[in-house]
């Protein structure tokens, strides 16, 4: 982990609404993200935890360039993201979505899904693409014979592996994972978390891992930022956040982890 931070957020703000009504009256703006500053180190995992509506998904969409920030700066490799053209930004930062099935086009096979980034982002030709698709399937532990199947033929965990493979196909430095395991059973969740850990160790990709579940974030992140109502209310090392929470909201998140008292360590 060198000193270069591939992703840096400085006072990022995103407002919804606002503007003026038909008669020129100012409409109230809602600040979904309210002055967030964060740093993600190379090859590391930064966890963001908070309940739904706290602005964490808005934050994710701004980082990957799907939404422009209202104010503040998002720097990738020390360069503001609005200076990137679309394709080179998507080669740097990719995203994995919450709904494993909903993030895949129901009418495209796995092969078709995985070939798109190889062609448009990496400029690969057909024979190279064919080999790389096989490699990607192998990387996320999906059997090669599944390659011509449609998303609805897979389980949730398998769909999420396809989503991860698609993000990896762009060979990004950073992957933003927006609630990647929330829709999965604990047993499948464990498989996906393990896969993410293995991929990071092998490929050195950095993760911004977003979840409402502190236990999950704690299991995978090096550092954790707790987000409430658009602001970061606490940040620190993963173990430190859990063992010595400073903010009342962090304590509430810890209290909400199911079965914590009943489950043996």
């Amino acid at each position: 982990m060198s000193g270069v931070a591939p992703l840096e957020l400085v006072d990022v703000v995103r407002e919804y609404g606002g503007g003026r009504s038909l008669f020129g009256r100012r409409l109230p703006a809602h600040r979904a993200v309210d002055g967030v500053s964060l740093t993600l180190q190379q090859g590391a995992t930064l966890g963001i935890v908070g309940e739904s509506g706290c602005g964490k998904s808005t934050l994710a969409r701004m980082i990957v360039g799907l939404l422009p920030p209202t104010a503040g700066h998002i720097l990738i490799d020390n360069r503001p993201i609005d200076q990137f053209d679309r394709l080179s930004l998507h080669r740097k930062v990719q995203m994995v979505f919450q709904d494993p099935l909903g993030s895949l086009n129901p009418r495209k096979t796995v092969r078709q899904v995985l070939e798109i980034p190889l062609r448009s982002l990496r400029g690969m030709h057909a024979p190279a693409r064919r080999d790389r698709v096989q490699e990607l399937m192998h990387l996320v532990s999906l059997r090669a014979e599944f390659i011509d199947r449609y998303p609805h033929e897979f389980s949730g965990g398998q769909c999420q592996r396809i989503g991860i493979a698609r993000a990896l196909a762009a060979e990004p430095e950073i992957i933003v994972l927006d609630e990647p395991v929330s829709a999965l059973d604990v047993s499948v969740q464990a498989q996906v978390l393990r896969l993410l850990q293995d991929l990071q160790a092998r490929l050195g990709v950095a993760y911004l891992f977003i979840s409402h579940d502190l236990a999950v974030v704690e299991a995978i992140a090096d550092t954790v930022a707790v987000m409430q109502a658009g602001r970061i209310v606490e940040r620190g090392g993963a173990a430190q956040i859990f063992l010595a929470p400073q903010h009342a909201y962090t304590r509430e998140l810890i209290g909400a982890i199911p079965g914590l008292s009943a489950m043996p360590a």
């Binding site: 499948v188 464990a190 393990r194 236990a215 999950v216 299991a219 090392g237 173990a239 982890i257 360590a265």
Partner: peptide
Amino acid sequence: VPRPGQARREVEP
């Protein structure tokens, strides 16, 4: 089931 308090414990699927 991830158990907090043992940071970066490898989950065992």
